[in-house]
Amino acid sequence: MPQKKKPIGVVAIGDVAAVFLKVIAAHISGYLNLDAEILPSVAHPHFALNENRFQYDCGVILKTIDSESFDGYEKVIGVLAVDLFVPIFTHVFGEARQGGKMALVSTYRLQNNLKGASVPDSLVYERTAKVALHELGHLFNLMHCDDDKCLMHFSGNLEELDETPLFFCRYCTAYFRDALQRQ
Protein backbone atom coordinates (compact mmCIF):
# COMPACT_ATOMS: atom_id res chain seq x y z
CA MET A 1 0.00 0.00 0.00
CA PRO A 2 1.37 3.48 -0.75
CA GLN A 3 2.24 5.61 2.27
CA LYS A 4 0.06 8.62 3.02
CA LYS A 5 1.32 11.81 4.52
CA LYS A 6 -1.46 12.22 7.06
CA PRO A 7 -1.68 9.33 9.54
CA ILE A 8 -4.77 7.62 10.90
CA GLY A 9 -5.65 8.78 14.40
CA VAL A 10 -6.80 6.36 17.09
CA VAL A 11 -8.53 8.05 19.98
CA ALA A 12 -10.13 6.80 23.20
CA ILE A 13 -13.54 8.31 23.91
CA GLY A 14 -13.96 8.01 27.66
CA ASP A 15 -12.18 5.32 29.65
CA VAL A 16 -10.72 2.68 27.40
CA ALA A 17 -7.83 0.32 28.18
CA ALA A 18 -4.74 1.58 26.34
CA VAL A 19 -4.06 -1.86 24.95
CA PHE A 20 -7.08 -1.60 22.62
CA LEU A 21 -5.72 1.59 21.09
CA LYS A 22 -2.32 -0.03 20.61
CA VAL A 23 -3.84 -3.11 19.01
CA ILE A 24 -5.87 -1.02 16.57
CA ALA A 25 -2.92 1.21 15.66
CA ALA A 26 -0.68 -1.83 15.18
CA HIS A 27 -3.20 -3.49 12.88
CA ILE A 28 -3.65 -0.35 10.81
CA SER A 29 0.09 -0.17 10.32
CA GLY A 30 0.62 -3.90 9.93
CA TYR A 31 -2.32 -4.84 7.70
CA LEU A 32 -2.99 -1.62 5.80
CA ASN A 33 0.52 -0.19 5.78
CA LEU A 34 -0.76 3.18 6.94
CA ASP A 35 0.74 5.33 9.66
CA ALA A 36 -1.34 5.26 12.81
CA GLU A 37 -0.99 7.47 15.87
CA ILE A 38 -2.64 7.19 19.26
CA LEU A 39 -4.16 10.53 20.22
CA PRO A 40 -4.97 11.93 23.66
CA SER A 41 -8.30 10.65 24.85
CA VAL A 42 -11.45 12.75 24.77
CA ALA A 43 -14.11 12.96 27.46
CA HIS A 44 -16.76 10.33 28.11
CA PRO A 45 -19.76 11.01 25.80
CA HIS A 46 -22.42 11.58 28.47
CA PHE A 47 -24.34 13.68 25.95
CA ALA A 48 -25.00 10.59 23.78
CA LEU A 49 -26.53 8.39 26.49
CA ASN A 50 -30.06 7.31 25.67
CA GLU A 51 -31.69 6.87 29.04
CA ASN A 52 -34.39 4.56 27.79
CA ARG A 53 -31.92 2.15 26.28
CA PHE A 54 -28.89 2.70 28.54
CA GLN A 55 -26.83 2.81 25.40
CA TYR A 56 -24.88 5.50 23.55
CA ASP A 57 -26.15 6.87 20.25
CA CYS A 58 -23.52 6.59 17.52
CA GLY A 59 -25.13 9.31 15.42
CA VAL A 60 -24.96 11.81 18.27
CA ILE A 61 -21.33 10.96 19.11
CA LEU A 62 -20.23 11.23 15.48
CA LYS A 63 -22.04 14.53 15.00
CA THR A 64 -20.52 16.03 18.13
CA ILE A 65 -16.98 14.69 18.09
CA ASP A 66 -16.50 14.70 14.33
CA SER A 67 -16.79 18.46 14.44
CA GLU A 68 -13.79 18.68 16.75
CA SER A 69 -10.52 19.26 15.04
CA PHE A 70 -8.54 16.28 13.80
CA ASP A 71 -7.04 18.26 10.96
CA GLY A 72 -3.71 16.55 11.01
CA TYR A 73 -5.24 13.13 10.49
CA GLU A 74 -6.61 11.45 7.38
CA LYS A 75 -9.23 9.49 9.31
CA VAL A 76 -9.91 8.89 12.99
CA ILE A 77 -11.01 5.76 14.83
CA GLY A 78 -12.79 6.55 18.10
CA VAL A 79 -12.70 3.67 20.60
CA LEU A 80 -15.27 3.29 23.38
CA ALA A 81 -15.90 0.81 26.14
CA VAL A 82 -19.64 1.57 26.23
CA ASP A 83 -22.52 -0.09 24.38
CA LEU A 84 -23.32 1.68 21.10
CA PHE A 85 -26.53 1.77 19.07
CA VAL A 86 -28.12 3.33 16.03
CA PRO A 87 -31.88 3.93 16.32
CA ILE A 88 -32.99 1.00 14.18
CA PHE A 89 -30.67 -1.59 15.69
CA THR A 90 -30.41 -3.16 19.12
CA HIS A 91 -26.65 -2.54 19.09
CA VAL A 92 -23.64 -2.11 16.83
CA PHE A 93 -20.01 -3.18 17.22
CA GLY A 94 -18.90 -0.11 15.30
CA GLU A 95 -20.23 2.64 13.11
CA ALA A 96 -18.95 4.79 10.28
CA ARG A 97 -20.48 6.88 7.51
CA GLN A 98 -19.40 6.10 3.97
CA GLY A 99 -16.52 8.44 3.18
CA GLY A 100 -16.74 10.08 6.63
CA LYS A 101 -13.87 11.30 8.75
CA MET A 102 -14.48 9.39 11.97
CA ALA A 103 -15.54 5.86 12.86
CA LEU A 104 -16.53 4.42 16.22
CA VAL A 105 -15.58 1.05 17.66
CA SER A 106 -17.07 -0.36 20.86
CA THR A 107 -15.30 -3.04 22.86
CA TYR A 108 -18.41 -3.54 25.01
CA ARG A 109 -19.91 -6.55 23.22
CA LEU A 110 -16.63 -8.09 22.11
CA GLN A 111 -15.57 -9.43 25.50
CA ASN A 112 -17.86 -12.46 25.70
CA ASN A 113 -19.04 -15.30 23.53
CA LEU A 114 -22.65 -15.65 22.32
CA LYS A 115 -23.68 -17.36 25.56
CA GLY A 116 -22.18 -14.62 27.70
CA ALA A 117 -19.01 -16.40 28.92
CA SER A 118 -15.79 -14.41 28.71
CA VAL A 119 -13.30 -15.19 25.96
CA PRO A 120 -9.47 -14.96 25.90
CA ASP A 121 -8.05 -11.44 25.66
CA SER A 122 -6.33 -12.30 22.38
CA LEU A 123 -9.71 -12.97 20.78
CA VAL A 124 -11.13 -9.71 22.14
CA TYR A 125 -8.19 -7.78 20.63
CA GLU A 126 -8.59 -9.57 17.32
CA ARG A 127 -12.31 -8.73 17.23
CA THR A 128 -11.58 -5.09 18.07
CA ALA A 129 -9.03 -4.89 15.27
CA LYS A 130 -11.46 -6.45 12.80
CA VAL A 131 -14.23 -3.98 13.66
CA ALA A 132 -11.77 -1.05 13.50
CA LEU A 133 -10.36 -2.05 10.10
CA HIS A 134 -13.87 -2.77 8.75
CA GLU A 135 -15.12 0.67 9.81
CA LEU A 136 -11.96 2.28 8.45
CA GLY A 137 -12.83 0.59 5.14
CA HIS A 138 -16.17 2.44 5.19
CA LEU A 139 -14.36 5.72 5.85
CA PHE A 140 -12.44 5.02 2.65
CA ASN A 141 -15.79 4.42 0.89
CA LEU A 142 -15.56 0.64 0.76
CA MET A 143 -18.98 -1.03 0.85
CA HIS A 144 -20.05 -4.31 2.37
CA CYS A 145 -18.66 -7.22 0.40
CA ASP A 146 -20.54 -10.38 -0.58
CA ASP A 147 -17.43 -12.49 -0.08
CA ASP A 148 -17.59 -13.95 3.42
CA LYS A 149 -13.83 -14.35 3.34
CA CYS A 150 -13.36 -10.58 3.23
CA LEU A 151 -12.99 -8.13 6.09
CA MET A 152 -15.66 -5.93 4.50
CA HIS A 153 -18.26 -8.72 4.70
CA PHE A 154 -20.99 -7.70 7.12
CA SER A 155 -20.88 -9.56 10.45
CA GLY A 156 -24.19 -9.48 12.26
CA ASN A 157 -23.01 -11.31 15.36
CA LEU A 158 -19.85 -12.44 17.16
CA GLU A 159 -19.84 -15.84 15.51
CA GLU A 160 -19.74 -14.25 12.07
CA LEU A 161 -17.19 -11.69 13.23
CA ASP A 162 -14.91 -14.50 14.42
CA GLU A 163 -15.19 -16.19 11.04
CA THR A 164 -14.32 -13.00 9.17
CA PRO A 165 -10.64 -12.77 8.24
CA LEU A 166 -8.42 -9.79 9.02
CA PHE A 167 -7.80 -8.94 5.38
CA PHE A 168 -9.72 -7.62 2.37
CA CYS A 169 -10.57 -9.75 -0.65
CA ARG A 170 -8.69 -8.82 -3.81
CA TYR A 171 -11.53 -6.61 -5.07
CA CYS A 172 -11.77 -4.65 -1.81
CA THR A 173 -7.97 -4.42 -1.73
CA ALA A 174 -8.07 -2.84 -5.17
CA TYR A 175 -10.89 -0.45 -4.15
CA PHE A 176 -8.98 0.46 -0.99
CA ARG A 177 -5.78 1.18 -2.91
CA ASP A 178 -7.75 3.24 -5.38
CA ALA A 179 -9.44 5.19 -2.57
CA LEU A 180 -6.05 5.93 -0.97
CA GLN A 181 -4.72 7.28 -4.22
CA ARG A 182 -7.74 9.51 -4.65
CA GLN A 183 -7.51 10.94 -1.11
Binding site: I88, H91, V92, F154, G156
Partner: peptide, 10 residues
Protein backbone atom coordinates in the same frame (compact mmCIF):
# COMPACT_ATOMS: atom_id res chain seq x y z
CA UNK B 1 -39.88 -4.71 15.19
CA UNK B 2 -37.67 -1.70 16.06
CA UNK B 3 -34.98 -1.90 17.27
CA UNK B 4 -33.84 -5.09 15.58
CA UNK B 5 -30.54 -6.93 15.52
CA UNK B 6 -28.31 -5.96 12.58
CA UNK B 7 -28.37 -9.52 11.25
CA UNK B 8 -32.19 -9.49 11.15
CA UNK B 9 -32.12 -6.77 8.51
CA UNK B 10 -29.57 -8.75 6.51
Amino acid sequence: LKPFKPEQLS
